[in-house]
């Protein structure tokens, strides 16, 4: 086991900030290359016109998941040191819904809005301003919402534990689901999104 490097003391906190910047460059580069600096491209997902958000997101999830699975199996990375965020089911369901509505209303999500600002989208500046206002609001109101935000604490819970299946079996199911989704995405675009007809 030699990874994760930082958790095993390969470098310190100051160096981790340089790593953060470099990883961010890669993140921003591929978000922009995918077209995610454009609110129209992003929201086309929700009108079935272009399911690129689904394709990119699930390809990325499958790529990273398979890499971690195989490198964990080969003993290269200690998966117990890889951070898995705590599940707070009710606030994550409500927060997810709010975020989803905000995606269609605002056209971006926090990460993609940064890429949009970097490529000159003026509406993304307003979106970013709104994000700050939202955080300000919930921060000020925190004493009132803290109880709900900490409710339904299920700890470090993973899908293999929920489904009572081995890690490898869930990895396989996620890959199958993604491949099925990629196969179905084109059909959805043609049937519901009007792809192949004249562009308005």
């Amino acid at each position: 086991m030699s990874m994760p490097l930082y958790k095993l003391g390969a470098f310190g906190d100051e160096a981790s900030l340089v790593v953060a910047f470099l990883i961010g460059i890669g993140f921003g580069f591929f978000l922009e290359q995918a077209g995610f600096g454009s609110a129209k491209k992003l929201t086309d997902q929700f009108y079935f016109r272009d399911l690129a958000v689904f394709r990119v997101m699930f390809t990325a999830i499958v790529t990273a998941m398979l890499g971690l699975f195989w490198l964990g199996w080969a003993g290269v990375v200690d998966l117990s040191l890889v951070y898995v965020s705590t599940t707070y089911l009710a606030p994550q369901i409500v927060g997810g819904l709010l975020l989803g509505v905000g995606f269609t209303v605002g056209g971006y999500c926090p990460g993609t809005s940064v890429v949009a600002v970097a490529t000159g989208k003026l509406d993304a500046l307003f979106f970013l301003g709104g994000t700050f206002l939202g955080i300000l609001a919930i921060g000020v109101a925190w004493p009132a919402v803290e109880g709900f935000a900490h409710s339904t604490d299920l700890g470090r819970l993973t899908l293999p534990e929920v489904l009572h299946l081995p890690f490898g079996a869930v990895v396989f199911l996620v890959v199958l689901m993604a491949l099925g989704g990629f196969w179905g995405a084109g059909a959805l675009e043609r049937r519901l999104g009007g792809k192949g007809e004249e562009e308005p």
């Binding site: 927060g95 975020l99 509505v101 905000g102 926090p110 301003g129 709104g130 939202g134 955080i135 609001a137």
Partner: peptide
């Protein structure tokens, strides 16, 4: 939309 995102 940004405000909803921030809260969510």
């Amino acid at each position: 939309g940004g405000a909803l995102m921030g809260i969510g």
